[in-house]
């Protein structure tokens, strides 16, 4: 499985007074098993971009190939694409609607035409993967806490057994522990199930900690597409477009300026710690 994005452009509200170029000639390749972070400030086009990856929006120009098939070809079935590329929107708990959690998670696979038995197995597995306690399965999703609801919503997408899962700011509004729980769960899915993960986030710390590659979108253009260290090393350019590097980068910068010969490319606490310890020993 791979997704090839070939020079796509998207015009928002074409023909109206709100018309503007939301995506401008974006090309990239997403390989099976990658863990990708997408960053960009609000309105940069990153949400528009990810909606193209499962065909919810159609580019005005350019092509997207899923497994070497053009998804804009007339005989291509979008349903098929959505089965393989799961998209979890921001605040996904707001789309829950069924009377029980289990039924809600069954919604996706049922739409895809899974048999009853397969649907239930898929829902059961998905709920287990997000670590929801089994005693809750037949309760109303509306009685859960914010973090639990979100996990149910993610399970709703996982139950469709996607090869790729895209998460749009999955930790927004959660407390620190809740954030870690969601991200650790995603990480586990990536490691154990070999699912490709595309994580949209505002938190540079989270991106630095989890992803293998960062795509930075600004003003509809893909401005960086590289591994985290390489992207964050150019933090001055990131600041110019309203973004930043993780706090650790700045700590190491300050230490370096104060005369410590630390590893300035460290982006996680673990790396920073090791670099400082090496120096002091």
């Amino acid at each position: 499985m791979s997704i090839i994005v070939d020079k796509i452009s998207y015009i928002y509200e074409e023909g109206s007074s709100m018309e503007r170029l939301a995506l401008d000639n974006i090309s990239c390749v997403i390989e099976q098993g990658e863990f990708i972070g997408v960053i960009g400030h609000t309105g940069s086009g990153k949400s528009t971009f990810i909606q193209h990856l499962n065909g919810l929006l159609k580019a005005n120009k350019g092509h997207i190939y899923y497994n070497e098939q053009d998804i804009y070809a007339p005989d291509f079935k979008m349903q098929e694409l959505r089965k393989h590329v799961g998209l979890v929107f921001q605040y996904p708990e707001h789309q829950l609607f069924e009377s029980t959690i289990f039924k809600d998670v069954c919604f996706g696979p049922k739409n895809l035409g899974f048999s009853d038995k397969d649907t239930q197995i898929a829902a059961f597995n998905a709920l287990r993967q997000v670590g929801l306690d089994e005693s809750l399965y037949y309760q109303s999703p509306f009685d859960l806490s914010g973090g639990q609801k979100r996990r149910v919503a993610i399970a709703g997408v996982l139950a469709m057994k996607p090869d790729v899962i895209i998460l749009d700011e999955p930790t927004a509004g959660l407390d620190p522990k809740g954030r870690d729980e969601i991200l650790d769960c995603v990480k586990k899915l990536h490691d154990e199930m070999k699912i490709t993960v595309i994580l949209v986030s505002h938190s540079m710390e989270d991106v630095a900690k989890y992803v293998d590659r960062i795509m930075v979108i600004n003003d509809g253009k893909l401005v960086f597409n590289n591994e985290p260290k390489a992207v964050f090393a150019r933090h001055e350019e990131l600041e110019k477009i309203g973004l930043a590097a993780p706090s650790v980068t700045y700590i190491m910068e300050d230490l370096y300026k104060a005369g410590f010969d630390v590893d300035r490319s460290a982006i996680t606490i673990e790396e920073a710690k090791n670099s400082i310890l090496n120096l002091l020993k």
């Binding site: 407390d175 620190p176 993780p246 706090s247 650790v248 700590i251 606490i269 310890l277």
Partner: peptide, 18 residues
């Protein structure tokens, strides 16, 4: 308590632990 500390605090704490 399901909370956290600022990154620099965490780094200092980790260094102290080491």
């Amino acid at each position: 308590l399901r909370l956290d500390v600022p990154q620099v605090t965490e780094l200092a704490y980790e260094l102290k632990k080491a």
